[in-house]
Nucleic acid binder design. Sequence first.
DNA 1: ATCCCGAGGG
DNA 2: CCCTCTGGAT
Length: 221
Amino acid sequence: MPRETNAAKRERAVEVCERLNRRYGPVECFLDHENPFRLLIAVLLSAQTTDAQVNKVTPKLFAQWPTPEAMAGASVADVADTIKSLGFYKSKAKHAVEAAQMIVADYGGEVPADMKELVKLPGVGRKTANIVLNVGYGIVEGIAVDTHVNRIAHRLMLSPKTHAKEPLKTEQDLLKILPHEYWESVNHQWITFGREICDARKPKCDECPLADLCPSVRVAG
DNA sequence: ATCCCGAGGG
DNA sequence: CCCTCTGGAT
């Protein structure tokens, strides 16, 4: 079995994006994002949780600590108490406070609009940084690869099996095969698709709009 | 029971 | 590479 060429992958990936774009149109960020700082904190809190859960706690959180300066002075325990309904609340509280401190100390109270600087913040990896750059600043220099994007990329075999557990490498694979104009739409549209159709446990292949070009499609019955 | 709109640390 | 952190959803 000859390895698929990048050109073939690109054609398939572009068709995937075109179809999902037609299906979902422009998808908005479901997290509250009044400014880059609040967006950063919200994305930080969103790991292993739904946006709805995050949106329940952020009003209380930002009522107490509205700015980087305020949150930099918060006690981790108090923040943890406020976000306790979220998973991983202790580490998230620690990351939020320490990130705020670093934003004040090193970046003049402004969330840096730069990938290299963003990933220096505690709790911020490439996935979170991509969302902040993308949604907060309109800068698209990568693709936010979370568990959905990762899973779908591999089911569609747009990234080699050896990268299945390495979302950073999956991102590089997608960046190589997808034209830049598609990068921004990938995160939200693929996530929406992942939740609706291509979920982790029981993908609904029988009603999937991509079934005809998916190497992993499973036939009903 | 098992999985999740991740990242840090061993 | 693996593990851990965690509550909520299914």
